[in-house]
Structures are given as structure tokens and as C-alpha cells.
Nucleic acid binder design. Sequence first.
DNA 1: ATATATTTTGAACAATGTTCATTTTCAACC
DNA 2: GGTTGAAAATGAACATTGTTCAAAATATAT
Lengths: 192, 192
Amino acid sequence: MIEIARGLIATNGLRSLKVRDVAEAADCSIGSVYNEFGDFDGLILTVNRETVRALTARLVAVPAEDPVRQLHGLAETYLAFAADHANLLRSLFEHRMEDDRPFPEDILLMVMQAFALMHEPMVRLLPDRNPEEVALLARMMFSAVHGIISLGLEERMVAVPPEKLRQQLAQFVDTHLVGLGISLDKARDGEV
Amino acid sequence: MIEIARGLIATNGLRSLKVRDVAEAADCSIGSVYNEFGDFDGLILTVNRETVRALTARLVAVPAEDPVRQLHGLAETYLAFAADHANLLRSLFEHRMEDDRPFPEDILLMVMQAFALMHEPMVRLLPDRNPEEVALLARMMFSAVHGIISLGLEERMVAVPPEKLRQQLAQFVDTHLVGLGISLDKARDGEV
DNA sequence: ATATATTTTGAACAATGTTCATTTTCAACC
DNA sequence: GGTTGAAAATGAACATTGTTCAAAATATAT
């Protein structure tokens, strides 16, 4: 059932997800969807939860030997996920809850965890800086990468081809690291 | 009537905009809204059009004497606009059209024009690089700024206070420019 | 003043999230 | 096997909301 909802979101976007379609595809009644997820938001959030879980799993799997390479890997992995599951990511970031119910804590935590994955390599690259400041830098870098990817893939706005985007992202990460005073060559070979 | 719709979006978000509310507030019938805008999307797009127009107007007004200062000004102006009109900007970037009707050409052009405002100062700062490459850099930088701001202001995700965000943005722009090999002090004083 | 065109209206319709009394299913017990 | 009571599934009915369109109201022309 979650599978079905995810498929519908992935192929046609969140807007085209209908309770009745899910129920019919799952060969059950409308009421059963409500018994399972409480309401429509509950269904969407369940899909979103799995989306961020899948994303985090991929990001965590990025090798961490070399911090610079890790940062590139995180950006590339994020891009690959976004390119493969554009609608699912949009559902995660753009869906507003009914009324103004609070965003579920656990999803928030997982997103934060994903954000924080850039923290460790950044600390390694900037051992002398205040860790709190580095945390902000990491979040900022993640946000920047997110922006580049999400706007870059936006079809409405003349999307950049993924391969082109991959190059741009790599360039962006390098540029930013250089700007932070990190020597790319050194980091890529030596230490650890 | 546009005014009313904008007010409703701005205060409660796009999701809470209802045709009936607009009609009632405008003291006219539901049908009149349709006569004026064709359909619901038409109304939203009209508001979005004015949003991007207002944003562009503010960005264009940023002084262009010094390219580095201009880039900072553009980022700060964008932040100020986003902080003041978070829901309107979200409506512009997140609204999906019914079915899959194409995104209106004129709005697309205006957004592109806004993107392109970073192009000129970047060309001035990187006179030796291929202008096409610089255009990509500019778009990338705009996307990064957009990402930092939109995620930064996202209340669901523990929003960064705007003042803090302002500092971070300035730092980001500086860092990126340094990474591109641009001397900030020189640029800030000399040449033109 | 009449006729024609234009605009406005809002009741009716369609799509869709939601509820809940009813039915069905299932498990436990005698 | 039959009885009983809890648990789960059902889908008709409802509420909200975008949309349509024949009719009414208004404006314009002659």
C-alpha cells in the first residue's frame, strides 16, 4: 500500500495522489486506508519517512576515508537520488501539512541527520575552527547543494542535464573548499 | 482581488487559498473570479507573476558600482524579500500546475532574468573566463543562495534566525568568491 | 425604447478527503 | 459446532472546494 502510494507520487507527483486510487490499486476500501494511516497526511508522511530513510541510507554509505572525496560523494549521491526520485524528494520538502499541524519529529530528526553528514568531514578539514561554526558551515553547504540540485533539476525552469549538473556540483564543492582555505590536492592524497 | 489573494497566500500559505474566500472578500461572485482569471491556477499565477516582478524590481535596484558589493547586495536583498514574503516565494517556486500544463513563459523569463542578475558582476570579477561558463557559475551561485535561504527560513526545520542567516550568507558569498580566485579587498576598493 | 451585446451571478456539478454505522472476519470459549 | 464478542474492513453518505453555465442583470447601440 505504501509501495503503491510511493509509485503514484514518483510517477505523477504528489498532487495526483488520490486516496481512491490507492485504495483501488491496493484492492481494498477507502476506509482501510484511513484505518492504516489515520488520514491523507499520514499516508504521505509514511512515504516521506521512507524517502528520507532511503536517502540517508545512501548518504551514510558514502566512503569516509578522505574527507574531500566524502564531500564530493555526498553531493553526487544526493544528486543521483534527486535525479532518480525527483517527485519523492519534492514531496518530502514541499508538502505542507493540513491546518498547521507540526512537522513530525522523527522525520525532522532524520533530515537533520542527513544535514549533519557533512559535518564530520568538514570538521576533519577544518580542525582549528570552532565546531559549532563548522556545524553551521556544514548545514549551509548542504543547503547550497540542495538548492543547486533542486533548482537544477526543475524541469519547469529549463533543467540542467544531470551530467552537466554533476560537473557543476563537483566544481562548486571544490570552489567552496578552496574558499575555506583547504588545499584539495593535499587532502585528496595524504593524511589518513 | 489580486491583492486579496496575495494577502491570503502571504498570511496562511498557498494551501489555504480558496476561491470562495477570495470571492467573498472581493464582494463578488465565484463566477467573477473565473471570468477574470480563467481558473484557479490563473489566479495563483497572477499573484506569482507579481511576486517575481516585485522581487526582480528589488534585485535590479541593488547598486552595481562594485561587483563584490553587488553580489552581497543581491543575496541580502533576496534574503530580505524571502523573510518578508516567505509564503509568496514558496507559492512561486513550489506551486505545480493542474494536469501538466506548461509553466507560463513570461514567469519563466522573469525568473531567468532574476537568475541572470548575478551574471554581470561575475563577468566583471572573472573577465578572463568563458562568458558561458560564467553564466553557469552565476546560475549555480543563485541556486546555492536560494537553497541556503529557503532551507534556512523553513520553520519546520528549525529555522535559522534571519540575522544569523544574513551573516552566513555574506560569509558564503565571500568564501565562494575567494574559491574562485577573487581578492575581496582589491575588488571592494579599486577598479570602477 | 428596443434590441443586442457584455458582464455578473450563483445554483448545480464533479472531484476528493473524511466519517461512521454496518457488515464481515476472526478468535476464544463452551 | 455453535455462540459470543472483539477486531477489522467496508462503502455509502457527507463536507469541502474547484468548475461550469444557463439565466439574470447591466451596459451599449440604434
